[in-house]
Design a protein around this nucleic acid. Structure first.
Lengths: 230, 230
DNA sequence: CCGAATCCTTATTGATACTG
DNA sequence: CAGTATCAATAAGGATTCGG
């Protein structure tokens, strides 16, 4: 689309020449959540079309934002990884994703898979957390069930139900939406009221707080940046 | 381009549906530097084509990011203005523009108009400045001449030469590039060595520091954000 | 002159089929 | 699994025209 680019001597135009094409930034976003195979990307980017994915990956590699890596045997599959340069887009992507949050409507039940929402959340999840925490929570939203482990500053997700969870949270789509998108710092408490909790309530509350954290922090940072723009 | 959008329940995809089209973010960037008429935008966005500009402005208005305003007589012209929502993109735009800086090559002499470079710089210029400063400097880069006034936290630019300037800086394109893009905090001192200065050296140095400021601050913020990603 | 709307050509995309 | 190839549908680029 930007075949011969914006021909402007402007760093924003330069950036857009590199990542301004349709789908490109979404691919970068996906790769920020970890290395992925071609088919993983296809799956996580519904609607992209295999030719476009291939084309974008090629350009991203030429631009030095992405690299192909071959996993050691027995996996022996090739994955795409963001380079250091590509990782440099993290603040931008987070800031843009945060801005977009204000336009999101509560989803229809079933429209959304919790797993994807929490996965994306995990990108914005930072290091500002208690290093001693080690929580394993089963989260079920309108029947859609995943396991989330928070260990210090690392969040990992697994599918299906967990026998060893410290807490089980069951909640409806709307409440989940409220917890995640609300800039209020008591959104987690509110979500807890709406939820059915099994197991350690303390752990459950901490988990909901963690899921809300990115939004709160991002807003604070955005305000600060806006107040004294760079 | 994104006619029926990415159909993903994802705030980044939502953002891109609004500002992901070609030219759109550049238009927003322009408007961040102040209200502009249709023809001003055409001029500042070389290559856009009048039909596209019209189409983008229409979409941006529908999306609530831009509004049309009619200036009071005798100006009586209509200008486009960013709404509060549109202004919310400021941190994103600054972060993306900062990221792109690493790919910029020193321009050919004459390729670039100082005025445009400094104009864009003024967007990133923030409030972290000495409120007592009131400097008026004439800056000439390879013969291209503008006047810059810094008064507290406000930077204004005017064309042509100034009789009343406190200092006159004359420098080549390459040195100007170095001052602006260098993350080193002594870039300004370096630039001063390369320059011919007439008038108050203290004022000249402060001006070069100010032009370098955005880059330095932006990098510091990016590092911080990357370290504890939102 | 400003602020577009129209027409036409080229480039990019989206969807699907196909291959090593 | 990891892409290519094909092709119709769209969007962008460029020139010109039009109304106030």
């Amino acid at each position: 689309m930007a075949k011969h680019g914006y021909q402007q001597y402007c760093s924003l135009a330069t950036s857009l020449d590199m990542i301004g094409d349709r789908w490109t930034l979404l691919i970068v976003f996906e790769l920020m959540m970890g290395a992925q195979r071609y088919s993983d990307l296809l799956e996580h980017l519904p609607g992209i079309g295999t030719n476009l994915l291939a084309a974008r990956l090629k350009r991203l590699q030429e631009a030095g934002l992405v690299e192909k890596e071959t996993l050691p045997p027995p996996a022996a599959s090739t994955v795409y990884v963001l380079t250091e340069t590509g990782q440099g887009l993290r603040p931008t992507v987070i800031s843009l994703a945060t801005w977009g949050m204000q336009f999101m409507e509560p989803p229809e039940p079933g429209e959304v898979f919790v797993r994807d929402v929490v996965r994306r959340r995990s990108l914005m999840f930072g290091t500002r957390c208690d290093p001693d925490v080690d929580d394993l929570v089963e989260l079920s939203v309108d029947g859609d069930r995943i396991g989330i482990r928070i260990r210090g500053d690392v969040m990992t997700i697994e599918d299906g139900s967990l026998k060893e969870a410290n807490a089980r949270i069951e909640l409806d789509t709307r409440s989940m939406f409220d917890v995640i998108t609300s800039p209020e710092k008591d959104a987690a408490e509110y979500g807890l009221e709406k939820a059915t909790v099994d197991g350690d309530h303390e752990v459950a509350l901490r988990m909901l707080r963690t899921l809300n954290l990115p939004r709160t922090i991002a807003l604070a940072q955005a305000r600060e940046t806006a107040a004294s723009p760079v």
